[in-house]
């Protein structure tokens, strides 16, 4: 898969239709930093689909594309990364004009900490144990962005998904029109399988950690490092609500808090932080699993946000990252709706 993508990137760069590409490259110590490449020779280091996710691709992209890029930028991303990029464009953190997103049939990613212990592990789409819990239940494993490299159903082909993708293929003189029926078959059967897994997982997660007691338990180990927030592509705020000065409580309030229940946990905003974060970002969550990878306390935070996200997106029939034209649910409204929530 890597070599097909690298060949494609090379063609694109040489053609001058694309002036730079964003792609993970092999770095020291089994790392795969995102690299912006404009020189074909630097593609030698490219690892378009690394076994693991160090930085969410949309986060890397957003670090320099808040204004429109000059010349076309071709970014190779996993489907969840491309979807996050679409969400970020709606949140005005990425200007997607002039950016072409190329995705692939994603094999999933190895849990970061496991990979750091054993860099020999490779993600295998058919062996769930090799990939992260959220990857195992991911139903959006293909066909995001402008183009997608199909690797199943007998294909080894970059397929256009949007006019921008088609235009790139045209300019590269790639005019194959393969029979995609077996590939579509593959995708829908895996999707159905994953949907079952995901429903089951969400059910058992909810059962295990439902309610106040369960939440207190599951977030017990939270050390307030905020890594989940920092690595999240959707959490783009420079200053999070939880860190604002006006949230500070006087010492007397802390003592009062402790007195009213006999004892109180200090660094108290744990649940507030997580629930507040979910209220803020769950509509745009793409279930990429980066938060869970980053958590030093092994809290299933990504699975929890993903579970909540399933609930909140259903209210608006919204699918994060699917359609760039579909407005963010909180940025729009209908006059007649949601009457069950008001009185």
């Amino acid at each position: 898969m890597n070599s097909i993508i690298v060949d494609f990137l090379e063609k694109a760069l040489v053609s001058d239709y694309v002036s730079s590409v964003l792609v993970p490259s092999g770095g020291p110590d089994n790392t795969f930093p995102w690299t912006l490449i404009s020189d074909v020779s630097a593609l030698a280091m490219a690892e378009p689909v690394p076994p693991v996710m160090y930085v969410q691709g949309a986060k890397a992209l957003a670090s320099f594309t808040q204004s429109m890029t000059e010349g076309k930028l071709l970014a190779v991303m996993r489907p969840c990364e491309a979807r996050a990029a679409v969400e970020l464009s709606k949140l005005e953190q990425i200007d997607l004009d002039n950016i072409i997103l190329l995705t692939m049939d994603c094999p999933g990613a190895v849990p970061l900490k496991e990979y750091r212990r054993d860099a020999g592990i490779q993600p295998d789409i058919s062996i769930p144990e090799t990939i992260r819990p959220l990857c195992r239940q991911c139903t959006e494993f293909t066909s995001a962005g402008d183009l997608c490299l199909a690797m199943h159903g007998g294909l080894r082909e970059v397929l256009p998904l949007t006019p921008a993708g088609q235009e790139l293929l045209d300019s590269l003189g790639m005019k194959a029109e393969p029979d995609t029926s077996a590939w579509i078959e593959w995708a829908s059967s895996l999707k159905a399988e994953r949907e079952a897994v995901s429903t089951e997982n969400r059910k058992s997660l909810k059962k295990a950690y439902s309610g106040l007691e369960g939440l207190v338990e599951v977030f017990s180990g939270c050390i307030s490092c905020r890594s989940c927030r920092t690595v999240c592509p959707i959490c783009y705020c420079r200053l999070c609500f939880i860190d604002m000065k006006d949230r500070r409580c006087p010492a007397s309030a802390h003592l009062e808090n402790s007195r009213s229940s006999g004892a109180a946990r200090v660094m108290s905003g744990t649940l507030l932080f997580h629930i507040g974060r979910m209220a803020h970002m769950s509509l745009s969550c793409v279930s990429c699993g980066m938060c869970e990878d980053a958590c030093p306390s092994d809290i299933p935070v990504g699975r929890l946000v993903s579970m909540v996200s399933a609930g909140t997106t259903a209210v608006f029939n919204y699918s994060a990252g699917s359609d760039p034209e579909d407005p963010l649910p909180l940025n729009t409204f209908r006059l007649e709706e949601l009457h069950e929530y008001e009185d």
Binding site: W34, L36, F64, Q66, S67
Partner: peptide, 22 residues
């Protein structure tokens, strides 16, 4: 700490490739 696309691109041009986020 956000960079403009031009700045990052010119770095990439000069070095062949550049790590992002920088």
């Amino acid at each position: 700490t956000l960079h403009s696309p031009e700045l990052v691109r010119s770095e990439a041009k000069r070095k062949g490739s550049v790590r992002v986020p920088a």
